[in-house]
Computed example of a mutant assay.
Amino acid sequence: MRSPPILSEALRLFFPLAALHGAVWPFLWIVIGSYVLPFADAVPPSQWHAHEMIFGTYAMALAGFLGSAVPEWTDTKAASGRTLLVLAGLWLPGRLIGFAGADAWSLPAGLFDLTFLLALSALIGTAMLARRTVKHLAFLIWLLLFTAAEAAVRYAWWSGDTDRASRCLEAALCIFIVLFSLSATRINVVVLNLALDPTGETTPYRPHPGRQHMAGAMVTLYMAAKLFFPQSDVCAWLALAAGAAFFDRLAEWFIGRAAFKAEVLLLGFGNAFAGAGFLALGATRLGFSVTPAAGLHLLSVGALGCAVMAVFIIAGLRHTGRSLAHMPWQAHAAAGLMVMAGLIRVLPEFDVAAILSPYHHGLSAIVWALSFGVWLQGFLPFMRAPGTDEAGACG
């Protein structure tokens, strides 16, 4: 029996699941539950929230991207049907336990999450092995490090060391920022060239080799320093260097009027949020009156929110046989709402738009949920309908 279109490749199933989780969970936590988790005890609710955003919404989005992109890059058969359902089944228990903040069930939830991430690693590793290629090995290595960060967080919670858990969660966030940087390196070339020439007949944009991996390298150094030397001021200077590298990378978006197209602008905002986030983390450590939460939310809500929504829109259209030149209104609305959610969340923490405080948490959660909800409303029919991938859909 032939699988329905939504089970034909990873992103068709996993992107809607990630969007549904991203829309519903934070909305219920913040707007209805006021950050209170009914079964959280030893683990702070803030850490549960961070964990579920990173290893829930973002991890499933990553699974959709890698599960479709790596087979495309290696010219191998993409996972489909029952395999995708098994992966989704491994991901779901952790989300149900995380929604309630059930400390007592954290270890079983962690086992499901680790199995999910290891199964995803095996899936993309098998595709690389089949072609005897190491060209995309960096994605597999960082995915395995992401898996190790999940194990470290669960162990720290189990041992009652919430300080270590906090550092491991920040490390997981940094790992995801590196994965965003690696993905943008590939996606930008396709997206910027199509923005400049929608026919695809020419490729006027060429990336600067020096910019492609500098931001990821600096984030890696910052993450290592923060894990092993958390009291050192070196962390601050490395954070500033990472921020500067992301801002230097903004030069990739200097392509004239085409830079104002939604798909290009959203990737640029993700990069800018990342740069501002690391600068804020460095400034906090050097004594400026900026809370650590400001930098972390610039990264988690701003940078990764924009990056994930950009991938949802770009890959969601191209992998269903649709052109970026004819975006549905939901793509523009979802992009704008995601940028707005990031700004609402962080601006009051810099004493800008202070009128929003203390309501900016709930307002940002509502706008964030609307962004994913609008994307779902517009793109779920595409995911469920037959369609032919465009050539080079994921770069």
Rank of each mutant, 00 (worst) to 15 (best):
F14N: 01
A217D: 14
L120T: 05
P328C: 08
T126P: 04
G81W: 03
Q212M: 13
R249P: 04
D351V: 12
P16K: 00
G210Q: 02
P71E: 06
G101S: 01
G342P: 10
R132P: 12
V190K: 14
G94N: 09
T203K: 12
F278R: 11
V308M: 12
Y35G: 00
T115Y: 03
T203C: 04
A119Q: 09
G22P: 11
L266I: 14
L143T: 04
W29T: 05
S80F: 04
A241R: 02
L299N: 00
L194S: 10
L87P: 13
L376I: 06
S34D: 11
A40V: 02
R131T: 08
T83G: 08
G125V: 01
F269R: 03
I255H: 00
S68K: 05
A272I: 14
A18D: 02
L267S: 06
A50N: 06
P16V: 04
D163E: 07
G64C: 10
I124A: 10
Y222M: 01
L173Q: 03
F229W: 15
P5W: 07
I175A: 07
W237S: 06
R131F: 00
G342T: 07
R12A: 10
H49G: 06
T199C: 03
D233K: 08
V264C: 02
G101F: 00
R131E: 12
V339N: 14
L182Q: 10
S159M: 13
E263I: 14
S159I: 12
A104N: 07
L129W: 14
P4K: 11
M128F: 07
R257S: 08
A109M: 12
R206Y: 11
F228V: 12
P207G: 06
V311P: 07
V367R: 09
A274W: 07
R211F: 06
D75R: 05
H49K: 07
L298M: 08
A79V: 01
L118I: 13
H21Q: 14
A151Q: 07
S159V: 05
L114E: 04
N271S: 10
V374R: 09
G56K: 01
L281H: 15
T284H: 12
F379N: 13
A151S: 11
Q231G: 03
W253Y: 10
L84Q: 10
L144D: 04
A88P: 00
D389K: 01
G316E: 15
V178W: 03
L304R: 14
G33K: 04
R345T: 00
S289Q: 10
P5N: 10
V234W: 10
H332Q: 08
I97Y: 07
T126L: 15
L107Y: 01
P386R: 08
F99E: 04
E252N: 07
V178M: 03
L85K: 12
I30A: 09
T83V: 15
S232H: 05
A294P: 00
R2G: 05
G98C: 08
V346I: 13
L347A: 06
D103P: 06
G22W: 07
G321D: 06
P38T: 05
V134R: 03
R164N: 05
S80E: 01
W158Y: 03
G302L: 04
A391I: 01
R164P: 07
F269I: 11
R318E: 11
A151W: 15
L13N: 07
A393V: 05
